[in-house]
Write a protein that binds this DNA or RNA. Sequence first.
DNA 1: ATCATTTTCCAAAGCGCTTTGGCAATAGTT
DNA 2: AACTATTGCCAAAGCGCTTTGGAAAATGAT
Lengths: 342, 342
Amino acid sequence: MNLKKLAQNLGVSQTTVSRALNGYPEVNEATRNRILAAARQHNYAPNTRAKGLATGRAHAIGHVIPVATRHEMVNPVFGDFIAGASETYSRNGYDMLLTVVENGNEQEAYSTLRARGVVDGVIVHGPRMNDTRIALLDSLGLPFAVHGRATGHSGPYAWLDVNNRSAFRRATHFLLDLGHQRIGLINGLEHMDFAHRRRMGYEEALAERGIFIDPSIMRADEMTEAHGYRSTREMLDLVQPPTAILCSSMICALGVRRAIEERGYVMGRDVSVITHDDALSYLQNGDAIPIFTATRSSVRDAGRRLAQMLIDQIANPTADPETILLEAELTVGTSTGPAPRI
Amino acid sequence: MNLKKLAQNLGVSQTTVSRALNGYPEVNEATRNRILAAARQHNYAPNTRAKGLATGRAHAIGHVIPVATRHEMVNPVFGDFIAGASETYSRNGYDMLLTVVENGNEQEAYSTLRARGVVDGVIVHGPRMNDTRIALLDSLGLPFAVHGRATGHSGPYAWLDVNNRSAFRRATHFLLDLGHQRIGLINGLEHMDFAHRRRMGYEEALAERGIFIDPSIMRADEMTEAHGYRSTREMLDLVQPPTAILCSSMICALGVRRAIEERGYVMGRDVSVITHDDALSYLQNGDAIPIFTATRSSVRDAGRRLAQMLIDQIANPTADPETILLEAELTVGTSTGPAPRI
DNA sequence: ATCATTTTCCAAAGCGCTTTGGCAATAGTT
DNA sequence: AACTATTGCCAAAGCGCTTTGGAAAATGAT
């Protein structure tokens, strides 16, 4: 079924059908209803390609997700983010186009996406320090919005980020207030912007209390359970082990907990743990009472909102790019407690 | 830049440019090279919408992922599957379109996807028992391939599945061979086809050894860490606790391990554990030596292959639908050992 | 009843590509 | 030299939609 046939069936012009379906005023209510009914009956939906050609808009957003080739690592956060974004898209009649690209090859991906006219804009995932993608997209004139920020890039652009610095600063202070003096950091790869900022927040808090920043209790790697486990073991083996650990993700935190419990220690008594919690649907932090004390910010919600930002920007390209800085909430669970007396 | 302008610049017809770029023979090598060079120089890529309109193919595959509204649960397996599929798509010049749909609303998603002509086919995720989607897609005439199978649907269709039944049957036998008599099952939701089949395999093996199938050591829920933990605790609290546990996912298994270690038990000594391992990139089962004994099958690889199946089917619609049954490999880790003497 | 508006509809052009049918020009055969 | 194939190219139609520029019909104002 297509416009032409539908119009013929009804004995009206294609124009009228098109207008009726797209809510234009210059069509009689009676005919509009007739047309709407027929469209529904024939299960008609306008051909997206044709519509796109005619209007010059793709009504689609591209997500280019970089994959670290080394570990073939797909960010586990990704599924939930996408789910959130998708809600926004379906509400606004947008499609979501996914492209998985090896880390570093994003340049070509963006420019062909643009040249092929297949999307109206893109979401930038996993911004790194001094990320070049933003400048590239600016020069391409392809609308975009960044999930996170890129330290090192000047000039305005649309982004949504969790305030990682303040979240980790606050978490660190929380531990300091509990009397902890040696606080370990188990971070993500620090060329990633979010991880860099988290470290800043952590170091800032320590500096504010005049506490020595000790690289021997700071680790950065891909945020796996194994990373959390290994790093925690190593740190607990030190002559001066940390009494608290700050950790960058729930998956990591599972490893941290394992290393702690393996020694017969109890979380929140012998070693305190705070993790960042992206509120992933398949990794909930306890049911009613949270297990981990956590800096929490829903990545699904971020997806929803960032998608909306981009859509707004596409609709209104002259407006200044919007930016959203979300404050993570600190939820107190059972994984933290006063520093043990030595 | 578009075809018309490019042709004008070069002083040839659009036809010639089109043929040159698409590798048709009826164009002189010299002019072809001239055209190719110009295209590269101007960063030209044919407009996908226009191309699609002209050819009648979208060169895109749709992924409709159902989301359980209850827990807003995105299958954690999804990211890796997508990453795999994406590799195939980019190799074949296909785009990937993602639609997240509330469980049960897939019907409409498929039919509008079809009506709008936006994809050439779809991948069906998370098939359930007696899944109606397959019949629907057949009636729509939209090519599809299923990740998994749907018990209850008769008639041929394209699918790729892990042999869940044999994997869990084998795993159960493995435990039985180690002398375990009480083997717990921590499964996914059993209206999901894969979970159903796993249970079949488990029960089959027990029956083959004449062992009583005890519902009190069988649990089914969404495969979260908490589910693994809770179920294991409950089962270990029984008067006759299981000496071994079979578990449906790595995430679950983390919870199982936690419950075991929490009691001071040692995995592989006091309680044996086998889990299914989808080889998720962010949840690797140990580095060199696997931690868990596991039935292992890479979901990323499944994505790669299923995508290829669908593309082949689209290219050759009259061929019989292909089916692939992958055998999971049983990798022995440190989480299993002989049944403890009572 | 006449003219000016407004309402309701339409024909046709155009979006950027592929593809059909055909026409020169060249090469190959006798 | 005359005829047939082959090669290399082109003009134009068509994919399914939107949208412009009217035009006919209905309505309102005088």
